[in-house]
Design a protein around this nucleic acid. Structure first.
Length: 88
DNA sequence: GTTGAGCGTT
């Protein structure tokens, strides 16, 4: 199961996310979303859990918590949309 | 500062 983490601090790192979420279960991967050109955090991230119950536990426990000075939001990630293939 | 990329033409 995959979680969406919103309202993240721009200072947040994958390692910090991994440590924070692995307290509730086995984290397979973390992915902070960066601006494609500047590599600056876009303020949200994804965390993938091996187990659904672990993810739900983390979601309940961490939603609304403060992390690196920002109050984060945690919920189940939506499917990633397909990229448009135009001249842009 | 709120739902993920890169390649390359649907």
């Amino acid at each position: 199961m995959k979680l969406y983490i919103g309202n993240l601090s721009y200072r947040m790192t994958n390692d910090e996310l991994n440590k924070t979420f692995s307290a509730y279960g086995d984290v397979l991967s973390t992915h902070i979303v960066l601006d494609r050109e500047t590599q600056r955090s876009k303020g949200f991230a994804f965390v993938e859990f091996s187990d659904k119950q672990a993810a739900e536990s983390a979601m309940q426990s961490l939603n609304g918590k403060e992390l690196a000075g920002r109050t984060i939001v945690v919920n189940e990630a939506r499917p990633k949309p397909a990229r448009q293939r135009r001249a842009g």
